[in-house]
Protein backbone atom coordinates (compact mmCIF):
# COMPACT_ATOMS: atom_id res chain seq x y z
CA UNK A 1 0.00 0.00 0.00
CA UNK A 2 2.78 2.43 0.88
CA UNK A 3 6.02 3.22 -0.83
CA UNK A 4 9.32 2.54 0.97
CA UNK A 5 9.53 3.98 4.48
CA UNK A 6 10.65 7.56 4.53
CA UNK A 7 11.91 9.71 7.37
CA UNK A 8 11.44 13.42 7.78
CA UNK A 9 13.73 16.35 8.41
CA UNK A 10 12.26 19.66 9.48
CA UNK A 11 14.54 22.68 9.53
CA UNK A 12 14.20 26.39 10.17
CA UNK A 13 10.58 26.10 11.17
CA UNK A 14 9.40 29.55 12.17
CA UNK A 15 5.96 30.87 12.80
CA UNK A 16 4.88 34.40 13.64
CA UNK A 17 1.45 35.92 13.95
CA UNK A 18 1.29 39.66 13.25
CA UNK A 19 5.01 40.00 13.86
CA UNK A 20 5.01 38.13 17.18
CA UNK A 21 7.01 34.92 16.82
CA UNK A 22 5.45 31.75 18.24
CA UNK A 23 8.64 29.81 17.60
CA UNK A 24 11.76 30.33 15.49
CA UNK A 25 14.27 28.04 13.77
CA UNK A 26 12.98 24.77 15.15
CA UNK A 27 14.35 21.59 13.70
CA UNK A 28 13.59 17.93 14.16
CA UNK A 29 14.38 14.65 12.44
CA UNK A 30 12.27 11.52 12.33
CA UNK A 31 13.85 8.24 11.32
CA UNK A 32 11.87 6.06 8.90
CA UNK A 33 8.98 4.05 10.38
CA UNK A 34 9.35 5.62 13.80
CA UNK A 35 6.62 7.08 15.97
CA UNK A 36 7.32 10.45 17.54
CA UNK A 37 5.01 12.31 19.90
CA UNK A 38 5.08 16.06 20.28
CA UNK A 39 4.01 17.17 23.75
CA UNK A 40 3.43 20.56 25.24
CA UNK A 41 1.05 22.71 27.25
CA UNK A 42 -2.04 24.14 25.54
CA UNK A 43 -1.23 27.11 23.37
CA UNK A 44 2.51 26.37 23.11
CA UNK A 45 2.18 26.01 19.34
CA UNK A 46 2.52 22.25 18.91
CA UNK A 47 -0.55 22.02 16.65
CA UNK A 48 0.66 25.07 14.73
CA UNK A 49 4.01 23.35 14.15
CA UNK A 50 2.24 20.27 12.83
CA UNK A 51 0.03 22.37 10.52
CA UNK A 52 3.12 24.18 9.31
CA UNK A 53 4.78 20.88 8.41
CA UNK A 54 1.61 19.66 6.69
CA UNK A 55 1.61 22.79 4.52
CA UNK A 56 -1.69 23.98 5.98
CA UNK A 57 -0.34 27.28 7.24
CA UNK A 58 0.27 29.60 4.31
CA UNK A 59 0.32 32.85 6.29
CA UNK A 60 3.12 35.34 5.85
CA UNK A 61 4.95 34.50 9.08
CA UNK A 62 5.11 30.79 8.31
CA UNK A 63 8.43 29.34 7.11
CA UNK A 64 9.76 25.82 7.03
CA UNK A 65 12.24 23.68 5.09
CA UNK A 66 11.35 20.02 4.64
CA UNK A 67 13.26 17.04 3.32
CA UNK A 68 13.40 13.33 4.00
CA UNK A 69 15.80 11.79 6.54
CA UNK A 70 18.60 11.66 3.92
CA UNK A 71 18.13 15.28 2.91
CA UNK A 72 16.34 14.56 -0.38
CA UNK A 73 13.25 16.40 -1.50
CA UNK A 74 9.97 14.93 -0.29
CA UNK A 75 7.75 13.25 -2.89
CA UNK A 76 4.31 14.62 -3.70
CA UNK A 77 1.62 13.46 -1.27
CA UNK A 78 4.25 12.75 1.38
CA UNK A 79 1.85 13.47 4.24
CA UNK A 80 -1.38 11.94 5.41
CA UNK A 81 -3.31 14.06 7.90
CA UNK A 82 -5.53 13.10 10.78
CA UNK A 83 -7.03 15.56 13.23
CA UNK A 84 -8.99 15.57 16.45
CA UNK A 85 -12.33 15.94 14.69
CA UNK A 86 -12.93 13.00 12.40
CA UNK A 87 -13.71 15.46 9.54
CA UNK A 88 -15.67 12.83 7.66
CA UNK A 89 -17.83 14.29 4.90
CA UNK A 90 -21.50 13.65 5.75
CA UNK A 91 -22.56 13.80 2.10
CA UNK A 92 -20.38 10.77 1.30
CA UNK A 93 -20.73 7.19 2.50
CA UNK A 94 -17.97 5.62 4.59
CA UNK A 95 -16.38 3.91 1.58
CA UNK A 96 -16.62 7.10 -0.51
CA UNK A 97 -14.87 8.97 2.29
CA UNK A 98 -12.09 6.38 2.19
CA UNK A 99 -11.71 6.68 -1.58
CA UNK A 100 -12.07 10.48 -1.79
CA UNK A 101 -8.29 11.01 -1.91
CA UNK A 102 -8.09 8.81 -5.03
CA UNK A 103 -10.97 10.67 -6.64
CA UNK A 104 -9.41 14.06 -5.93
CA UNK A 105 -6.18 12.83 -7.50
CA UNK A 106 -8.15 12.08 -10.64
CA UNK A 107 -7.79 8.32 -10.33
CA UNK A 108 -10.65 6.36 -11.82
CA UNK A 109 -12.66 4.04 -9.65
CA UNK A 110 -10.65 0.86 -9.31
CA UNK A 111 -12.03 -2.34 -7.86
CA UNK A 112 -8.62 -3.12 -6.38
CA UNK A 113 -8.62 0.07 -4.30
CA UNK A 114 -12.22 -0.56 -3.31
CA UNK A 115 -11.31 -4.08 -2.19
CA UNK A 116 -8.41 -2.59 -0.25
CA UNK A 117 -10.76 -0.18 1.50
CA UNK A 118 -13.23 -2.97 2.32
CA UNK A 119 -10.41 -5.13 3.72
CA UNK A 120 -9.28 -2.21 5.88
CA UNK A 121 -12.82 -1.70 7.18
CA UNK A 122 -12.96 -5.40 8.03
CA UNK A 123 -9.74 -5.07 10.03
CA UNK A 124 -11.29 -2.15 11.86
CA UNK A 125 -14.48 -4.12 12.48
CA UNK A 126 -16.53 -1.77 10.30
CA UNK A 127 -17.22 -3.99 7.29
CA UNK A 128 -21.01 -3.63 7.65
CA UNK A 129 -20.75 0.17 7.70
CA UNK A 130 -19.15 0.62 4.27
CA UNK A 131 -22.28 2.09 2.68
CA UNK A 132 -23.46 3.94 5.81
CA UNK A 133 -23.26 7.72 6.09
CA UNK A 134 -20.83 8.88 8.81
CA UNK A 135 -23.49 10.67 10.87
CA UNK A 136 -25.17 7.40 11.85
CA UNK A 137 -21.93 6.09 13.39
CA UNK A 138 -20.77 6.50 16.99
CA UNK A 139 -17.86 8.78 17.84
CA UNK A 140 -15.48 5.84 18.18
CA UNK A 141 -16.60 4.32 14.87
CA UNK A 142 -16.16 7.67 13.12
CA UNK A 143 -12.63 8.02 14.44
CA UNK A 144 -11.87 4.48 13.21
CA UNK A 145 -13.15 5.47 9.76
CA UNK A 146 -10.91 8.55 9.91
CA UNK A 147 -7.99 6.27 10.75
CA UNK A 148 -8.90 4.04 7.81
CA UNK A 149 -9.02 7.08 5.50
CA UNK A 150 -5.56 8.11 6.72
CA UNK A 151 -4.29 4.59 6.03
CA UNK A 152 -5.76 4.64 2.51
CA UNK A 153 -3.34 7.41 1.61
CA UNK A 154 -0.13 6.07 0.07
CA UNK A 155 1.80 8.66 2.07
CA UNK A 156 4.86 7.43 3.98
CA UNK A 157 4.54 10.07 6.71
CA UNK A 158 1.46 10.47 8.90
CA UNK A 159 0.81 13.69 10.81
CA UNK A 160 -1.76 13.44 13.57
CA UNK A 161 -3.14 16.26 15.70
CA UNK A 162 -4.56 14.84 18.94
CA UNK A 163 -6.36 12.14 16.95
CA UNK A 164 -7.61 10.19 19.95
CA UNK A 165 -8.48 12.93 22.41
CA UNK A 166 -12.18 13.29 21.55
CA UNK A 167 -13.17 9.69 22.35
CA UNK A 168 -13.78 7.88 25.63
CA UNK A 169 -10.99 5.97 27.41
CA UNK A 170 -11.97 2.45 26.26
CA UNK A 171 -12.34 3.54 22.63
CA UNK A 172 -9.02 5.34 22.88
CA UNK A 173 -7.36 2.17 24.14
CA UNK A 174 -8.78 0.22 21.15
CA UNK A 175 -7.68 2.93 18.73
CA UNK A 176 -4.16 2.84 20.21
CA UNK A 177 -3.89 -0.91 19.56
CA UNK A 178 -5.18 -0.54 16.00
CA UNK A 179 -3.04 2.46 15.18
CA UNK A 180 0.13 0.87 16.53
CA UNK A 181 -0.25 -2.23 14.37
CA UNK A 182 -1.62 -0.53 11.23
CA UNK A 183 0.86 2.36 11.21
CA UNK A 184 3.95 0.23 11.93
CA UNK A 185 5.46 0.83 8.48
CA UNK A 186 4.84 4.59 8.51
CA UNK A 187 6.68 7.48 10.03
CA UNK A 188 4.35 9.15 12.51
CA UNK A 189 4.45 12.58 14.08
CA UNK A 190 1.64 12.94 16.57
CA UNK A 191 0.66 15.91 18.69
CA UNK A 192 -0.85 15.06 22.05
CA UNK A 193 -1.35 16.69 25.42
CA UNK A 194 -1.49 13.35 27.23
CA UNK A 195 1.91 12.18 28.61
CA UNK A 196 0.58 8.66 29.21
CA UNK A 197 -0.56 8.34 25.60
CA UNK A 198 2.78 9.65 24.35
CA UNK A 199 4.75 7.13 26.44
CA UNK A 200 2.49 4.26 25.41
CA UNK A 201 2.76 4.88 21.65
CA UNK A 202 6.04 6.51 20.74
CA UNK A 203 9.64 5.71 20.00
CA UNK A 204 10.57 9.25 20.86
CA UNK A 205 9.05 12.19 22.68
CA UNK A 206 9.69 15.84 21.91
CA UNK A 207 8.53 18.58 24.23
CA UNK A 208 7.74 22.03 22.92
CA UNK A 209 7.97 24.71 25.60
CA UNK A 210 5.85 27.89 25.62
CA UNK A 211 9.04 29.86 24.96
CA UNK A 212 9.30 28.08 21.61
CA UNK A 213 12.07 25.58 22.36
CA UNK A 214 11.93 21.97 21.24
CA UNK A 215 13.68 19.42 23.46
CA UNK A 216 13.75 15.61 23.44
CA UNK A 217 12.50 13.87 26.56
CA UNK A 218 15.04 11.27 27.65
CA UNK A 219 13.81 8.19 29.47
CA UNK A 220 16.68 5.88 28.63
CA UNK A 221 15.25 4.23 25.52
CA UNK A 222 12.13 4.16 23.37
CA UNK A 223 9.20 5.10 25.67
CA UNK A 224 6.94 2.36 24.35
CA UNK A 225 9.51 -0.29 25.32
CA UNK A 226 9.50 0.75 28.99
CA UNK A 227 8.15 -1.58 31.63
CA UNK A 228 4.94 -0.53 33.39
CA UNK A 229 6.72 0.75 36.50
CA UNK A 230 9.34 2.62 34.44
CA UNK A 231 6.54 4.16 32.40
CA UNK A 232 4.76 5.32 35.52
CA UNK A 233 7.96 7.03 36.69
CA UNK A 234 8.53 8.58 33.28
CA UNK A 235 4.93 9.83 33.19
CA UNK A 236 5.41 11.49 36.57
CA UNK A 237 8.63 13.07 35.32
CA UNK A 238 6.89 14.35 32.16
CA UNK A 239 3.99 15.79 34.14
CA UNK A 240 6.43 17.60 36.43
CA UNK A 241 8.37 18.89 33.43
CA UNK A 242 5.24 20.16 31.68
CA UNK A 243 3.86 21.57 34.93
CA UNK A 244 6.93 23.76 35.39
CA UNK A 245 6.65 25.29 31.95
Amino acid sequence: MTSTPLGLTVEEASLAYQGTPLFENLSLTLSPSSWCCLLGRSGCGKSSLLRLIAGLDTSKGAKVRLSDHAGNALPAQAFAWMAQQDALFPWLSVIENLLLGDRLQGQSKSSARRAEAIALLETLNLADKAEARPYVLSGGQRQRVALARTLMRPSPIVLMDEPFSAVDAITRYDLHQLATSLLSDRTVLMVTHDPGEALHLSDRILVLSPSGRLAPFDCGGPPKALSLSQRADAEQELITLLGHQ
Binding site: A54, G55, L56, Q77, F79, Q85, F89, G101, L104, Q105
Partner: peptide
Protein backbone atom coordinates in the same frame (compact mmCIF):
# COMPACT_ATOMS: atom_id res chain seq x y z
CA UNK B 1 -16.56 25.70 5.70
CA UNK B 2 -15.20 24.05 8.86
CA UNK B 3 -11.40 24.27 8.84
CA UNK B 4 -11.16 20.54 9.55
CA UNK B 5 -12.74 19.87 6.14
CA UNK B 6 -10.66 22.32 4.12
CA UNK B 7 -7.50 21.11 5.90
CA UNK B 8 -8.33 17.57 4.97
CA UNK B 9 -9.11 18.52 1.37
CA UNK B 10 -5.77 20.27 1.14
CA UNK B 11 -3.79 17.32 2.50
CA UNK B 12 -5.68 15.05 0.10
CA UNK B 13 -4.33 17.26 -2.67
CA UNK B 14 -7.59 18.90 -3.76
CA UNK B 15 -7.26 21.70 -6.32
CA UNK B 16 -9.03 25.01 -5.71
CA UNK B 17 -11.89 24.00 -7.98
CA UNK B 18 -12.20 20.65 -6.22
CA UNK B 19 -12.19 22.37 -2.84
CA UNK B 20 -15.00 24.62 -4.05
CA UNK B 21 -17.26 22.07 -5.76
CA UNK B 22 -16.53 18.88 -3.81
CA UNK B 23 -16.04 20.24 -0.31
Amino acid sequence: TPTAWTDLGQTLGASNAQQLFRI
